[in-house]
């Protein structure tokens, strides 16, 4: 309370010093470092010369890489849409029909959310592989005669991603719907609106902050995903994430890899600015 104007005091500085040091040194500085590297030039033997070389960013327009970039955004967009279509009914159900089970129902969404990401992707390897549960079921139902190739396809990658990111969509949707005053719905219906009409004119627009937050939380990490395409995809489903991994671990073209990573970070920044503009707060659902 002493430094009235800026609000700073010795105690406050002490409380904030550790986080500033840790996130400054191990979050911000590394990001600035790859920003600098993204404008550098990779040497033949893996070294890097700093400078101002925009060619790493222009490389993205090389047809070879452009195909990967476009594919990544298409898959991430489809995944976001699937998560929205699956997540909305469940969030709606918990918020309006959950009653006294609400807490347990939302906890049941959070448990997969916190369960190891790798294992949840691996589960689909077990299900989709050659003679896995999926093929057994298809044959049992008489849809297919023999085992069909399900794994290592774009469809498998999309399915694995929808599974992995669905809780990221449900939680902010639920948070938005839970705040909703049910009297608004009653009012609309008293005034003669049909259920369908009430949903599209009242409920859905009011849940937009959740829809936008959920879409960002699904789209951004899907665009940077590399584990799911590694496990469930083949050579035809290489995504930006795989490309970044290759540049850093195999090709050792760190300048290009940094440029790709910066693009993903820029995408996040754009999404946050979009959220702030349309929802009007500067915070995103993080848990």
């Amino acid at each position: 309370m002493r430094g009235q104007k800026s609000g700073w005091s010795l105690g406050l500085a002490g409380l904030l010093a550790p986080v500033t040091l840790w996130l400054g040194l191990f979050f911000l500085v590394p990001l600035l470092l790859i920003l600098a590297y993204s404008f550098g030039t990779s040497g033949v033997y893996g070294g890097i010369t700093l400078g101002f070389n925009p060619s790493n960013y222009l490389k993205v327009f090389d047809p070879l890489y452009l195909e990967i970039v476009v594919r990544t955004f298409v898959i991430a967009a489809i995944n976001t849409l699937i998560c929205l279509l699956l997540g909305y009914p469940l969030a709606y159900f918990i918020a309006f029909k959950g009653g006294r089970w609400k807490t347990i129902l939302i906890l049941m969404v959070m448990v997969p959310f916190w369960t190891s990401f790798l294992i949840r992707a691996y589960a689909w390897v077990v299900i989709l592989n050659g003679n896995g549960v999926a093929n057994k079921t298809l044959q049992f139902l008489g849809i297919t005669d023999g085992p069909v190739n399900l794994i290592f396809t774009p469809g498998a990658v999309t399915l694995g991603m929808a599974y992995a990111y669905l809780p990221f969509m449900i939680l902010p949707l639920y948070a938005a719907l839970e705040k909703f005053d049910p009297r608004l719905k009653e009012a609309a219906q008293d005034l003669g609106a049909s259920k369908w009409h009430t949903f599209w004119r009242i409920t859905f627009p009011l849940s937009m902050p959740g829809v936008i937050a959920g879409s960002i939380l699904v789209f951004i990490p899907s665009a940077g995903e590399f584990v799911i395409p590694n496990l469930l995809g083949g050579s035809r489903t290489v995504l930006i994430g795989n490309l970044v991994q290759q540049q850093f671990l195999q090709a050792r073209d760190w300048a290009f890899g940094s440029a790709l990573a910066m693009m993903l970070a820029a995408l996040l920044l754009a999404a946050i600015l979009f959220y702030v503009r349309h929802v009007g707060t500067d915070k995103l659902e993080g848990v």
Binding site: F226, S258, A261, L284
Partner: peptide, 15 residues
């Protein structure tokens, strides 16, 4: 909390 993990990973590697 929202930065893609791969970006955090490679930037720390470089650092």
């Amino acid at each position: 909390t929202v930065m893609p993990e791969i970006v955090v990973g490679v930037s720390l590697l470089v650092f």
